[in-house]
Design a protein around this nucleic acid. Structure first.
Length: 564
RNA sequence: GCGCCUUUAGCUCAGCUGGAUAGAGCAACGGCCUUCUAAGCCGUGUGUCGGGAGUUCGAAUCUCUCAAGGCGCACCA
């Protein structure tokens, strides 16, 4: 906000401190009746050798108060109250003019950001854990795009690796072709689980699996054919889920895509003299950085994921010339990415510093852990369907006359799930509970969507309003001012969230907006107000609020409904 | 053993880069629909901010230490 600048400039001339240091000190008081901005004078107390409350008093007398309703000295604080009608007018007209572009900016113009997210493993079910990366990555994609960055969404499919040896071995032994036709992933999961059970009894299966993978790498016909088939049926299922979530990728270049790009990486490492042999494997030693070595080639000569990640990073730099290269991958892989980024740096690529691992926590049950190998998973599709079902029930219960119930149930149900995933700090684990995730009360997606629908309903009934016949200075209740101030900070919030790669900051902001709006809605009549100027001003405020909620949710990949 | 993370109300979590009496939601209880959607609003909390020490005008926030839990530590991704 420009207010901080104005305040710091005025204080700078009075105190001699730089505008920058002052701007950093300026804070927002905990309660609205204490003002909109505050400057703590405690630090000045030392240099001026004067009590903080005397300093604030003195500054209060001397400072230029134009543009502010008033300036007060409370204890060691200098509190500023902004001119509310000015704020209301500026904020609301800006929102109503910019509409769906409100909150957007151009600070990323000309810069490309690659975002690696979702990236499920082929042949394994898309379970509730995968939504974490998918939701965060998609939100970051939309948020960065809104600030003018060109984003490239990459689904780095797990379509290579020794697991395919296992799968091929299992396929040849136990697959039920009929079941595979009907529910491919479920059947693949079944034989994958069976493989692990059988391998416990007969460890030689592991060797057979390794052999199959080696054959696959060597391009043997049977293995390649099976691999292709598995990949094909998996993608059909994944796309069904991405469609439900309305998520699109710009690239599906998965692990197998880099098969022919790894020799070059090995050569480059060789040239730089970074490779050493250790226990039969080729590694980059990272002792100096207090990390275990980065393995480039296994002792059997086969490649490993670190090699692929190196190849992928180099490919992405060459292809997209990224400004930032983001990986939305779980925190357990923190060390792996440190190793890869450090290796890139050692290879002489300064852009290694632009590679960012955006980690997130685990999705787990209260008691046990999700495990694909044991078949202990909840399919994301089942969760989404359940949520839609629950939303449908609530509609029948609360608004049975609604026209497009199924459509609304879909938006609300899916919105509730995605919202839950984006509500908390991403590094926190999500404890999965049907009860919590299907509870649509309180700080949830449906709550926010409901607030939006309420606002839209008022606007529909108003049947338009005359923005030119408005007196914004009449929006002076505490609820109205608070709401306006919140709406004004939308862009700041997005920027702040992006700096931390943390969508939850935006999610919580939207909750705040909805909460403040509901208070306003409950306390102040809108349509029945006789004063036409006030009525129009309130309608403008409702209009602006719905715009911000809609834009905000859209950045999180969540839709709104006009009625619910 | 080493490294990283977590610890705030019964439960799930916020707490902006050190600041004014530590906040929400859920759950519980009590109020509010002849007026704009009650998926809403209002009210009710005796919290050692895991323990201890330090830094300073001031610490949930920074440093150190201890404790509990989690994750990771070379041929899986």
């Amino acid at each position: 906000m420009e207010y901080k600048k104005i305040i710091s400039e005025r204080l700078s001339t009075l105190t001699g401190l730089s505008t920058e240091t002052i701007e950093k000190l300026i804070e927002i008081p905990p309660k609205p009746d204490m003002g909109d901005f505050a400057f703590p004078c405690f630090q000045l107390a030392k240099t001026l050798r004067k009590a903080p409350n005397l300093i604030s008093q003195e500054l209060k007398d001397k400072i230029d108060k134009s543009g502010f309703e008033k300036v007060e000295a409370v204890g060691g604080y200098l509190n500023f109250f902004v001119d509310k009608s000015y704020l209301a007018k500026n904020t609301l007209s800006k929102i109503l003019t910019e509409k769906e572009k409100y909150g957007h900016s151009n600070i990323g113009k000309g810069k490309t950001i690659t975002i690696d997210f979702s990236s499920p493993n082929i042949a394994k079910p898309f379970h509730v854990g995968h939504l974490y990366s998918t939701a965060i990555g998609n939100a970051l994609y939309k948020m960065f795009s809104s600030q003018g960055y060109k984003c490239v969404g990459i689904n780095h499919l797990g379509d290579w690796g020794t697991q395919f040896g296992k799968l091929i071995a299992a396929y040849k032994r136990w697959v039920d072709e009929e079941a595979l036709e009907k529910e491919p992933i479920k059947e693949l999961l079944r034989i994958y689980v069976k493989f692990h059970e059988e391998a416990e009894k007969d460890p030689s299966l592991e060797d057979i699996a390794r052999m199959h993978f080696k054959n696959l790498e060597d391009g043997k016909e049977e293995e390649v054919m099976l691999w292709k088939k598995i990949k094909e049926v998996s993608l059909i299922e994944f796309n069904r889920i991405y469609d439900m979530l309305k998520i699109k990728f710009d690239s599906y270049a998965g692990e197998s895509f880099y098969n022919d790009k790894m020799d070059e990486v090995v050569e480059l490492l060789q040239e730089k003299g970074l490779l050493t042999e250790s226990k039969g494997a080729l590694v980059v030693n990272l002792d100096e950085y207090n990390m275990p070595p980065c393995i480039i080639k296994k002792s059997d000569g086969a490649t490993i994921y670190a090699t692929r990640d190196l190849a992928a990073a180099i490919y992405r730099k060459r292809t997209y010339d990224f400004y930032k290269n983001i990986y939305v991958v779980g925190t357990p892989q923190t060390l792996h990415f440190k190793q890869v980024f450090t290796t890139l740096k050692l290879m002489g690529f300064d852009w290694a510093d632009d590679c960012i691992h955006v980690g997130f926590g685990l999705v787990k049950f209260a008691d046990k852990k999700l495990s694909t190998r044991k078949g202990d998973v909840i399919f994301l599709e089942d969760l989404l369907k359940e949520a839609i079902e629950r939303a449908k029930e609530l509609i029948e219960q609360k608004n049975a006359s609604l026209e497009n119930k199924d459509e609304v149930a879909k938006v609300v149900g899916i919105g509730a799930v995605v919202f839950t995933y984006l509500k908390n700090n991403r590094e926190r684990d999500i404890i999965f509970s049907w009860e919590d995730i299907l509870n649509f009360d309180g700080e949830t997606g449906p709550y926010v969507q409901y607030s939006y629908a309420r606002g839209r309903s008022v606007l529909r009934k108003a049947n338009g309003y005359d923005i030119s016949n408005t007196d914004f200075s009449k929006l002076n209740s505490q609820e109205e001012t608070e709401l306006i101030k919140l709406l004004a900070s939308f862009n700041d919030v997005i920027i702040n969230a992006l700096e931390k790669y943390e969508p939850s900051i935006l999610t919580r902001y939207i909750i705040d907006v909805a909460k403040t709006f509901n208070k306003f809605y409950n306390l102040h009549p809108i349509l029945s107000v006789e004063d036409e100027m006030l009525k129009n001003a309130r309608l403008a405020l409702v209009d602006a609020t719905t715009i911000v909620i809609k834009n905000g949710l859209s950045l999180l990949g969540i839709d709104v409904v006009e009625r619910m």
